[in-house]
Nucleic acid binder design. Structure first.
Length: 491
RNA sequence: GGUCUCUUGGCCGAGUGGCUAGGCAGUGGUCUGCAAAACCAUCUACGGCGGUUCGAAUCCGCCAGAGACCUCCA
């Protein structure tokens, strides 16, 4: 497993060589969605980032267990809603069972993820299915003296914890900073300190998502499920924990505290955070109401969208930026990505057309090395893609006859694009294809192309161009190349 | 207010103390009956002001602007 993979660890704020605890096994946990609404462009970022990581680790030969949770218990909403459970609120508004909401949006989330060609996690646990485990974790933290009960709720005692460990190590904070800057929230009076957070919360009368416990009828705290389910499926020490940058504090900080309070040591070796997607320079977010859902993006059904963008365009767009950089949405940027993606896919497709020569004038191996180097450097996909475009130029030059490639090189080239573009970056071949998914259409087009050929032979350019123009109107593109006529469905 | 990050050419987006990132768009060619595709060439850069250095867009300081977190959030 000599991969030389370097990953940026939020915990150390440095790039570090990746060394799994128990090679060849790798435990990967990523914070999944709260299923109370449709996934938006922002949700695609972690999904694609950690799908890439999952794919690359597997490519390198690791046996990866990838756990991504579904949050279906809900968390507190903002002050206007008086601390009501998000999912419960939505349920009441629509007069549905909470679990109907959860099912509906979970299904839609899965559909979006499939469209983006992300691999399914090994395990996708639900918070609601782990209430007992979460209660047990609360007990353990209580036993260890890092929590206290207050009027049916249980709170994490940050001050007590901070005497033995460092609360704030992940996000670079200290308890003094927090002291001054914590806002007044519902239930504050029950807490000893404003920065204490709930492990178990007593449900108010109107709160419909609730479970019995020895403290109260209530629901688990907002950070507990991840500590609990990561431990259950990956152990109390595991390799990588991922999520959005906005979860770094307080969510991941609390997770570390809870796990450490329960098991006495740090749970995670490498913390990874993807940056945000912005729109007009501002974070795309539910609460800001400036988000574009993935369904809208794929259908073009949103006022800010000038057109629809395919899932692969979106995926390519995201991969063209480094995962730790903010990425700004704009129609211009998406359109540029769409064209770039097509250019890449056209070239990959045309590798098939290359015939091998006796000797090679191109160095595929050097290109491959550069691709690995880029990926190993904290998954630098923009650099990787720039190398793939270098290869595009090579491919096209070979086809035009200015360069040549031998049999071995051609095999290597084919494998290179298969591995990097499809297996690792998770791109799909362009949907455009003339490989007959409709035999009737294919016959029809071929017939008309034959007629056009005759017209061309007779130098009847008007007829030839008319056929091509009409085809274009119908969404079929014709190209006259040295090898003959090519056609494909444009979409 | 506290903590942190960022500021690159028309747009997006990498990167490094001295050597062309890449994509999209533009311009000029080649090829083609024309078109498309492709190839070749080419134009726009490193927020401002100081400092360190033989040399800084890259390191340091100040200023300006933007953003993230501090509250559910990917």
């Amino acid at each position: 497993m000599e991969s030389n993979l370097i990953l940026y660890n939020t915990l150390s704020r440095k790039k570090e060589e990746f060394k799994p605890l128990n090679p060849p096994f790798v435990g990967l946990y990523v914070c999944g969605p709260t299923v109370y609404g449709d996934a938006h462009l922002g949700h695609a970022r972690p999904a694609i980032t950690f799908d890439l990581l999952f794919r690359y680790l597997k490519y390198l030969g690791y046996k990866v267990r990838f756990v991504r949770n579904i949050t279906d218990v809900g968390h507190l909403v903002n002050d206007a809603d008086e601390g009501e459970d998000k999912i419960a609120k939505k349920a009441r508004l629509e007069e549905l069972e909470p679990m109907e909401i959860v099912q509906y949006f979970t299904d839609r989330y899965h559909k979006n993820m499939d469209d983006l060609n992300t691999l399914k996690p090994s395990i996708e646990p639900r918070a609601s299915g782990h209430i007992i485990e979460q209660q047990a974790l609360v007990e353990k933290i209580l036993e260890n003296g890092f929590a206290y009960e207050s009027d049916g709720s249980v709170y994490f005692d940050v001050e007590a914890y901070n005497k033995e460990f460092h609360y704030g190590k992940l996000s670079g904070r200290n308890i003094e900073d927090l002291q001054a800057n914590t806002r007044t929230l519902d239930g504050q009076s029950e807490k000893r300190k404003p920065f204490d957070f709930a492990l178990w919360k007593k449900a108010s009368a109107e709160h419909i998502m609730r479970w019995p416990s020895r403290w109260s009828d209530g629901f688990p705290g907002w950070h507990l499920e991840c500590s609990c389910m990561s431990q259950k499926y990956l152990g109390d020490r595991f390799d990588i924990h991922g999520g959005g940058l906005d979860l770094q504090f307080p969510h991941h900080e609390c997770e570390i505290a809870q796990s450490t309070a329960a098991y006495g040591h740090d749970p995670v070796s490498y913390w990874m955070h993807n940056n945000m997607v912005t729109i007009n320079g501002q974070k795309m977010g539910k609460s800001l109401g400036n988000f574009i859902t993935l369904d809208q993006l794929f259908s073009g059904d949103n006022d800010v969208l000038e057109q629809a963008y395919s899932p692969m365009t979106v995926r390519f767009f995201m991969l063209q930026a480094h995962y730790r950089s903010p990425l700004d949405f704009s129609n211009e940027a998406l359109k540029a990505a769409e064209k770039g993606y097509k250019r890449l896919m056209n070239a990959v497709d045309s590798i098939k057309k290359i015939t091998a020569s006796d000797k090679s004038s191109v160095d595929v191996n050097a290109l491959k090395e550069k691709c690995f180097a880029a990926l190993n450097d904290d998954m630098n996909t923009p650099i990787l893609i720039s190398h793939l475009f270098e290869g595009v130029k090579i491919i096209n030059t070979i086809i035009s006859g200015k360069e040549s490639i031998d049999k071995e090189g051609l095999e290597e080239l084919t494998k290179l694009y298969n591995d990097f573009a499809f297996d690792i970056l998770g791109l799909l071949p362009s949907e455009e294809s003339n490989s007959g998914n409709n035999e009737t259409l294919e016959k029809l087009v071929e017939t008309l192309i034959e007629i056009r050929k005759t017209a061309k032979a007779n130098k009847d350019w008007a007829t030839a161009d008319a056929v091509r123009d009409k085809f274009k109107e119908a969404g079929i593109e014709i190209k006259d190349t040295a090898e003959g006529v090519e056609w494909k469905l444009a979409n």
